[in-house]
Design a binder for these strands. Structure first.
Lengths: 338, 338
DNA sequence: TTGAAAGCGCTAACAC
DNA sequence: GTGTTAGCGCTTTCAA
């Protein structure tokens, strides 16, 4: 059906070897032959069978990405940008991107095992790391190329990019302290996620430095969705002693919190201050615009992908652990306590 | 390096043919041999080379999805859910999902041509169709299996799922009319997208039925982002005769519009009514919660993927054009005009 | 019930 | 410069 090098070989009266080498521009083929072969290939509409090349080369030229959906509706504002970051980088390097979805849990490791053993991908990209992350343990053990967006607790001899969430929170809390906030509540993400640890640590330590304590009663946990931000904030604000500021650990929960506050008649930035983390595009256009910490998701994806590609190609990566310096974005969702 | 059927064959003292057939449970192999082969395979830790199987079978067992990013920041709340829908469905059927990103424009068609000709995917999923869509013309011409989320203007002999945007808008406008709105503005998406046409048509015709006209001066175009919703609404609301209702053609722009309105001191649901379209999870938790039209993105993705898989497998698809009935979600962003 | 041989499309070592 | 041969790992006639 499809045109193969055999067809070209027949047409130009040469061997398939010669054709193959001509097409790859090897320098042991005469210019005339090359020309001849190229023309024939073009005329016949030849397209190499990538599959055959891959089988022969024993490389898949493909990067795998298993996205762990969160919550019931799979809504994740990160994904599109992150995907673009890795997708574009992979494409620029002639690699394909194989994507699948698999929630954390029971069968998760099967999904990873299968990807690794099928030899359908040359490397994997991990996101949303947990404190103890079986995916990373497994890949390390298998000695399979991978990079990770996020750290884990016990291991660190692998390539990763992460934002310095601790510093990000320090900047944020510093800002809140300068506005005289003392009763600061936190809507934290699930505790098994690594970045939760860092963010809480940043908050706690910055407060301690100001001789303040993070009140455990004011730390609640959400699941990173709008809804949970809404629910947690609703509860916090109905207390007899509501906080003057709510630090939500991601923008989505911050939006939920803003909605809850407004519903209860609070004016955000005056009666209550609310902060987010991530700086998704929407943060700029919420009402009021959200004070948050910027994460360059696209760049993180691109950088990770670059590291992985180099590794796959055997090029040593100098910086194996990249910790990005976060940027505080001050908008109007925080105001001074009288 | 990796274990192959050859190794198994050697171990059990049979031919590779027998091993292959035993592993696939053909019924011309004795139970004993099957047992023997299976045990040997397990012991050696055999994993089939999917690549080799695919080369031999001349099928890639892979579905392709090229996502057309919008705007500078690739932010698209749809993607994660849509991806989950197609990813899970593909996985359930043993197919892989190959994802790449490519913006509309110049080289877009090359990306599609390459996917088709590389024979790396058995079918493609198209999203965000344009009125005249070269991707669809091309795939139709190539007779390559594909399905589309969205219609096009001139062609309709291909499989697609779409929401009935016209009806959705009719429901929405009906709601606004019942609240006595007469000066209704529209923030429309780019005119080259097919769904823009349907949504505008729904608005226009419903108004006509009520003996009203859609004032062209009140129709502005955004690019589906928050920011553009914000900018367009800012301008609309600063006019001497501002509208009493703004129909944004997607939720993201509606949020931007809400932000602009609030910034100018409007109370949403009282001074100005704003509607969206899509019902992304955030719509429920904005302030005020957004009146919008629901699109079951996950299900659309899953359905599309199912159709495509059937086609690839040669199973005829009975319903080739699926138009989903939209659901109006009334929340608090709209109120009655005094 | 099993095996030999051919082939999917391509590349590479080695000879000429 | 070019061709022969072998092989990537697997499946599938066809014959035994």
């Amino acid at each position: 059906m499809a045109v193969t090098i055999k067809d070209i070989a027949k047409k130009v009266g040469k061997s398939t070897t010669t054709v193959s080498r001509a097409l790859h521009d090897h320098d042991d083929i005469s210019p005339e032959t090359k020309e001849l072969v190229r023309k024939a290939a073009a005329e016949l509409g030849y397209r190499p069978s990538i599959l055959a090349q891959r089988l022969q080369k024993q490389r898949s030229d493909t990067i795998g990405f298993i996205l762990p959906p969160f919550g019931p509706r799979y809504f994740d504002p990160f994904i599109s940008e992150f995907l673009a970051g890795i997708g574009n980088t992979a494409a620029r390097n002639g690699l394909d991107l194989l994507v699948s979805t698999h929630p954390p849990g029971e069968s998760e490791m099967n999904a990873y095992r299968e990807k690794v053993h099928s030899r359908l991908v040359d490397g994997l990209i991990i996101v949303r790391t947990r404190l103890k992350d079986p995916r990373i343990d497994f890949l390390l053990e298998e000695n399979f190329p991978f990079v990770s967006f996020g750290r884990v607790e016990n291991q660190q001899d692998f390539m990763l990019v992460d934002e310095d969430g601790e510093l990000g929170m320090r900047l944020l809390v510093e800002h809140l302290l300068s506005l005289n906030h003392r009763r600061i509540a936190v809507i934290a993400p699930p505790t098994n996620l690594t970045f939760t640890l860092h963010r809480l640590k940043g908050i706690r330590e910055k407060l301690n430095e100001a001789r303040l304590e993070l009140d455990d009663d004011l730390v609640v946990h959400g699941d990173l969705t709008n809804r949970s931000g809404y629910e947690m904030a609703s509860e916090l604000l109905r207390r007899s002693q509501p906080p003057t500021a709510i630090v939500a650990c991601n923008d989505l929960m911050a939006f939920g919190a803003m909605s809850a506050a407004q519903e209860q008649g609070f004016v955000i930035g005056r009666d209550i201050s609310i902060t987010g983390f991530d700086d998704i595009p929407m943060a700029e256009h919420s009402h009021p615009p959200l004070t948050t910490v910027h994460q360059p998701i696209y760049q993180i994806g691109a950088r990770l992908c670059d590291m992985l590609i180099n590794t796959i190609r055997g090029i040593p990566v100098k910086e194996r652990v990249v910790l990005l310096r976060p940027e505080l974005i001050i908008r109007q969702s925080c105001g001074a306590v009288p």
